[in-house]
Design a protein around this nucleic acid. Sequence first.
RNA 1: UCCUCCUUAGCUCAGUUGGUUAGAGCAUCUGACUGUUAAUCAGAGGGCCGCUGGUUCAAGUCCAGCAGGGGGAGCCA
Length: 477
Amino acid sequence: MEHTRRDKICDLLRSKIYDREVTVKGWVRTKRDKKTFGFIELNDGSTIRNIQIIVDFATVYGNTLNNLQDQNTFANWKEITTGAAVCITGKLVESPAAGQPVEIQAQKITVYGTADPESYPLQKKGHSLEFLREIAHLRPRTNTFGAVLRIRHAMAYAIHKYFNDNGFYYIHTPIITGSDAEGAGAMFRVTTLNDQQPPKLPDGRVDYTQDFFGKMTNLTVSGQLEAELGAMALSLVYTFGPTFRAENSNTPRHLAEFWMIEPEMAFYDIHDNMDLAEDFLKFLMQYALDHCIDDLEFLNKMYDNELIDRLRSVIASRFERLTYTRAVEILIASGQQWEFPVSWGTDLQAEHERYLVEKHFGKPVILTDYPKDIKAFYMKQNDDGKTVRGMDVLFPKIGEIIGGSQREEDLESLRRRISEMNIPEKDVWWYLDTRRFGTAPHAGFGLGFERLILFVTGMANIRDVIPFPRTPKNAEF
RNA sequence: UCCUCCUUAGCUCAGUUGGUUAGAGCAUCUGACUGUUAAUCAGAGGGCCGCUGGUUCAAGUCCAGCAGGGGGAGCCA
């Protein structure tokens, strides 16, 4: 096939240099027939917008549709259906009609790949998100998923940019882990043992010393502990990678495989941690508004009329910071009827978080200083002996978007906590070593990437903000 | 995992107290149309009514089980 340079549609739509030859390659969204000419709407993924191509049949085919009996002449035109991949060369001109700034007067059309209209599942009208999940291999070709995927990319890039520009180092933490000390949820086993006849110990249990790694291994549920090791040398680090939870969670906010961002900062206390989290989130939202406005406007129009206002409102607000204890007082004093009663010492339920964020304060909330018994072992204990320096950032619509804490840097306090929570010290000897050798105050947090994308896109279901969702009973594609 | 709702044409959905041959819009196909833009107009084709079993003279409709999906909850990010 002859090679031709490609003009990106996003560039052409912005161009003011008319009457020049251009070549576009992309996928047909719609075709509209007339008698002597037709229109093609072409999309190449560079923008949510299509470019319009006008095809004068006399120019391109030397004939008109009145002579349809001449099948050879119009075989090419008939192959141009929704979903077909084509290459079109023509002249870029100012559009004489409203609806688009420029259009292309076609001179030559090559069809790379047809899409049989009888069986191609995407049509030019809208589809339900549930249906599109069943064809996740084709849904990137829709306006909605094009927009979501471009925003997802922009947010991934903005995350790296933010940390890089602020002196953080990207550290790659392992995906296969031999520790299950996180306690963050059920794990997926990684093994190469024969699943029919695994080697057994005398007591009947599987002998993992004969497994690939010589021990039981799983997919990671968090890179935090390893990120802390990096922070104890490079001061400012972050991880950004896939994590896995084998929980049987069937909700619009949970995935079995999701991506998480975990910065870890030496010499930060919980207040520095909160400052960073707030600044970071606002930066990401501003980045989306600055770089993805076409896609955001589409999502705002089609799915969530308050999306752009909400992003702006979060950027403009100062996140409300209060202790867990104070939050419990507010909830008790609210006089609301709760499905789950509020009392000091139990974790807040979704209804409580929603009340604080959406009703009481009307803006993002950061809760701190939780009871130690409902939080992880590594959180720094307060002097009151009851609470730890954890912090959760709660957002409207999606609830907890960030969870973090100042970490316990004192070896003996940490060992006591590990013992209380029945975690074998031999599993975390390497983690304890950071407290043995040059320990320092430090803090960090975790941000669920897809939760962030949910908020930034206004989508309602987490399965629609990751290209190939992994959920219980679903690992297709 | 629990509660709840749903499953009818390629898609989105109607379908009356159980009663002849199961409908619509969009999509597809055929045609009309001198600038359309989710074009418009006319016509045509398209159904294991999720699966299995039951009740009944008769089941898309009632009952049970199973499967898949949505929403809520829990777990969490």
